[in-house]
């Protein structure tokens, strides 16, 4: 399982890196003239490209972050590994749910 998780974390990192750069670049570009909800919604509503872009972002983050957090908790606490696994799976679920909900809300 460790090897699969290692691969999953590295592959999602490779996907997340360019997505994060595009996201930050767009944010920096977009806020230059001030940022309003209308402006954001104009860009995202009905745009399947951005919806897919951020859906991929959310899915990758929901896989990547819990695996990293699992390592951190295992190294820094004495919590039983089963509990840690359950905790980070829940965290992944919450990230996925909230993230996809946010994507759907602005689509």
């Amino acid at each position: 399982m460790e090897k699969s998780l290692f691969l999953a974390q590295r592959i999602t990192a490779m996907i997340l890196a360019p997505l994060a750069i595009i996201h930050l670049g767009l944010t920096l570009f977009a806020v230059q003239g001030g940022l309003t909800a209308t402006e954001i919604l104009n860009r995202t509503q009905g745009n399947i490209g951005w919806a897919l872009f951020y859906s991929l972002f959310v899915v990758c983050a929901a896989i990547h972050a819990p695996i990293g957090l699992r390592h951190v908790i295992n190294e820094w606490t004495v919590m039983p590994r089963r509990w840690v696994n359950a905790l980070v799976i829940m965290l992944g679920g919450v990230l996925l749910l909230l993230g996809l909900q946010a994507v759907a809300a602005v689509y």
Partner: peptide, 8 residues
């Protein structure tokens, strides 16, 4: 690559 393996 198991628990406590090279991933750590």
């Amino acid at each position: 690559f198991g628990t406590g393996g090279c991933g750590s």
